[in-house]
Design a protein around this nucleic acid. Structure first.
Lengths: 202, 202, 202, 202
DNA sequence: CATGAATGAGCATTCATTCAT
DNA sequence: GATGAATGAATGCTCATTCAT
């Protein structure tokens, strides 16, 4: 390992730290109660840097938004993956995953909304969305399969069920937005109850 | 009934006819393959009127969007209501309702997308959304209740099932947008299969 | 001729009048002693219109610059053409043409400079430049040919002489810019003297 | 001569070497086929130095441009001077000088264009331009005078002729830019032919 | 009622220059 | 001397809405 590599690594770490700081500044700005639209200057000021500096770490505003969007999705996925592999009963994990998803997405609702309004879903590479959904579905499948193996769940098509479960979760966020009702609790419990009813061994 | 009233009615009819024409122009414009964003001028030109004239029929651009959004949702709801009261087996009606929803929403995908990106869901009166969702849920409930009465469906919580069903439908649209996959067929069949599995009499 | 045509014509006249006013405003702004660079807002303010209004008459800033550049070149060419066809001795016309060119270009020096610095020559259609130069050359040729016919000039290659004459004129502007000497008189007289010496009948 | 002086000289040489390297890097950058505008960073990178380092050798970007412009003009002038003092017939030297000028300027067209678009002519010290033009004119004068002494050229005002000749050369570059025609050959031959015709002994 | 020209606020991005290391 | 990250000013263009005709 040469001195050059050490230097390069230090640079890389600094670069990531700066990105991280800007990312957090963006979350702050977007989450403000009076937030109207994302202005680069606001993010820069929140991060205590000059606007031009921000452009050393993100190609442009859209690039920043992509990053924010990706980071949040990764956060959610990370929670799902972590919980799904816990050594606990399947139904408990199912419940915890739902709680985690609704908690994280609910907390950053404004960010997800902004990403959607900015057309991020349209612009992000399909592959990225596919991978994300695939990974999330896989976690649900694993939990369902475990539950069936445990004999706690009756035998159903785990993949299909997982996919529809994910659709329902996404739909809950969308529907509640229409109702401006951000207490996802009832819907989450409804969903869980229905799933458990569906999976009830005969 | 005075002459004034007759005149008023004529006015009202003309007013609605104009709104209708503008609504259709908006659908045309939004549906264009190269559509980027909704410009009032484009709608006016498509409707063959002056921009100023449009403002005689809609308070502002947002108002027009609300109208478009509402009309489309009413169209979908209308289809759901019509099908749900047909004298046919519940499972047939369930299938037809799903087909109808996916067909109409799919056809006007660009419009729903635009409404969402414009923040219409956030801004429209809660009551309107609640009523719409309530009506749609009621249709599903009716069909499910009929199916149970017929003995074709096992007995489940019809309201809860209807709500989750609706969430799942909404979620399918959202998820497919992420995947830029606008063939809703597979997801629709997955959903129907799962529901029928769930409702299978023991 | 229909009413529509009358209306259209009126529109066209108004449109041209507006373009003309903006053109003059641009000349004013560019000619200011403290002029640094062309800002659309400055032109609009000088023309007493809003910035947006300017964009009803010119597609963008570059478009305005093209217009200004073309108008000025046409002005110069117009002067050349008018003088070259006067019923006067060739040498008198030659002198007057030179005086006219140096007068007009000198007066709008800042505009020509700006056009050049903005890369207008690079971007304008070659054909336009070719036509302009061709027309100017033709005027010189005519005068030279007339002078030869009159027996006042000795017989030389009129086209070649005209072309070089034009190059020399252009070069004088360029050279004087280097010297920041905007009294073109001496060079103009040098040029005329040399030409007359060259054309002196044996 | 003290040690200090030796050190100073070494410093000076190193300084000039660095300037030279940066100058060449600038020529490279400006000459790139996709060159759009001169960015200090691009020059620094081409010269394999940091941007800040460049500022140790040039006060600012304009200063660098002045240097580039001056060096190129000196190059051209050097060619002119060298050729003008060759022991050859005047008309041969005249031809060679023209060929040399058009060759060098043609090769570095992009640089001259940039200098002009950057307003270098306006900003550079008058004295420098005057000296340059004076020297070039002197070379032409010398050649013309030699030609007259040789009896190969008829007797004309050598200074005036030289000045106009220079103007015409400059004008040719300018005119061809308008026409986006970078084959100076025809104009150069036209010019030479006209001059020789003018100087033809009776 | 219809017209459509005029309005003007609002914001991303670049890049020459500096200066702490 | 060398480095290169940080700075921040500066500006063209869009488009919803108005209102005089």
């Amino acid at each position: 390992m040469s001195a050059s590599t050490i230097h390069d690594r230090q640079q890389q770490v600094k670069h990531q730290a700066a990105q991280e700081a800007i990312y957090e500044a963006a979350l702050e700005v977007i989450g403000r109660p009076d937030f109207k639209g994302l202005r680069v200057q606001d993010v820069a000021r929140q991060a205590s840097i000059a606007t031009g500096t921000l452009y050393n770490y993100f190609k442009n505003k859209e690039d920043l938004l992509f990053y924010v969007d990706r980071r949040l999705h990764e956060t959610v996925l990370g929670r799902i993956q972590e919980i799904s592999s816990r050594p606990e009963p399947a139904s408990r994990r199912l419940n915890d995953i739902l709680e985690a998803i609704f908690e994280v997405v609910g907390r950053h609702r404004a960010v997800f909304d902004l990403a959607e309004r900015s057309g991020i879903p349209d612009k992000k590479p399909v592959e990225e969305g596919r991978t994300l959904l695939g990974s999330a579905t896989a976690c649900f499948e694993k939990v369902l399969a475990d539950g069936m193996a445990e004999g706690r769940f009756r035998s159903v098509d785990a993949r299909r069920t997982s996919r529809i479960l994910l659709h329902a979760i996404v739909g809950i966020f969308e529907t509640h937005k229409y109702l401006k009702d951000y207490d996802y609790g009832p819907s989450r419990r409804d969903l869980l109850a229905l799933v458990e009813d569906y999976l009830q061994p005969v």
